[in-house]
Measured scan of single mutants.
Amino acid sequence: EPSQADLDALLSAVRDNRLSIEQAVTLLTPSSGGGSGGGSMDAKEILTRFKDGGLDRAAAQALLAGRTPA
């Protein structure tokens, strides 16, 4: 399960175009075949909204942490 520091680094990389959204989703869902963790939004949607400015960093982190299976 990614830590808050991992999520923060991942969000920074996506925002700075050092990591594509697809690459980030793969890192967030290493063994689930890329499927959502059952959250209301999947990781790709969360990351896309964050990059487009629709979500701030704290909200994106909380959503990603919340949808990651324990």
Rank of each mutant, 00 (worst) to 15 (best):
L11S: 00
Q23T: 06
V14A: 01
P69F: 04
I21R: 00
G35D: 11
E1N: 12
S31V: 06
Q23M: 09
R49V: 04
Q61N: 07
I21A: 02
K44M: 07
D6Q: 09
E1K: 10
R18E: 06
D56I: 03
P30L: 15
E1D: 12
P2D: 12
P69C: 10
S3K: 08
D52K: 10
P2F: 15
E45A: 10
L64E: 00
I21Y: 01
A58Y: 08
A60V: 06
G38C: 15
R57W: 15
L63E: 03
T29K: 11
L27A: 05
P69Y: 02
G34K: 09
V25C: 06
P30H: 11
G34A: 13
G39L: 14
K44E: 06
A43S: 06
Q4A: 13
S40F: 14
A43Q: 05
G53V: 01
S40A: 12
Q23G: 05
L63K: 03
P2Y: 15
F50Y: 12
G35Q: 08
D6N: 09
Q23D: 11
E45H: 06
E22K: 05
P30K: 12
P69R: 10
A59D: 08
A5E: 10
G37N: 14
S12N: 09
L55A: 01
A70C: 14
R57T: 06
A65K: 11
S40R: 07
N17V: 03
A24Y: 01
S3I: 10
T48P: 00
S40V: 12
L11Y: 02
S20A: 04
S20G: 04
I21D: 00
R57A: 11
L64V: 02
E22C: 07
R57P: 04
R15I: 11
R15N: 05
P30Q: 13
S40C: 12
G39A: 12
R57I: 07
T29A: 09
S32Y: 13
L27G: 02
G39P: 11
L47V: 02
D6L: 15
D42S: 13
P2T: 13
S20F: 02
T48V: 06
R49S: 05
A43G: 04
G38T: 11
S20V: 02
A60Q: 00
D16V: 04
S40W: 14
P2H: 14
S36K: 09
R18W: 06
G53I: 01
G34M: 12
D56T: 11
T26K: 14
E45I: 07
L47C: 01
T29V: 12
T48R: 10
L7V: 08
A65R: 14
G38F: 14
A70Y: 02
T68P: 12
G33S: 11
Q61E: 07
G66M: 08
S3V: 11
N17S: 09
A43D: 04
G39F: 12
Q61V: 09
I21T: 02
A59V: 06
I46K: 00
L28I: 06
G39I: 13
G39W: 07
D52Y: 13
Q61I: 15
T68S: 08
G34L: 14
A13I: 02
L64D: 00
E1S: 14
G54I: 13
P30T: 13
L19P: 00
P30Y: 15
Q23W: 05
S31P: 11
Q4R: 10
E1I: 13
L7P: 02
I46M: 02
G66T: 09
F50H: 02
S32F: 12
D42H: 08
G39S: 12
K51N: 03
D16T: 08
E45D: 14
D6T: 07
K51L: 06
Q4E: 14
G54N: 15
D42C: 15
K44R: 12
A9M: 12
L63Q: 04
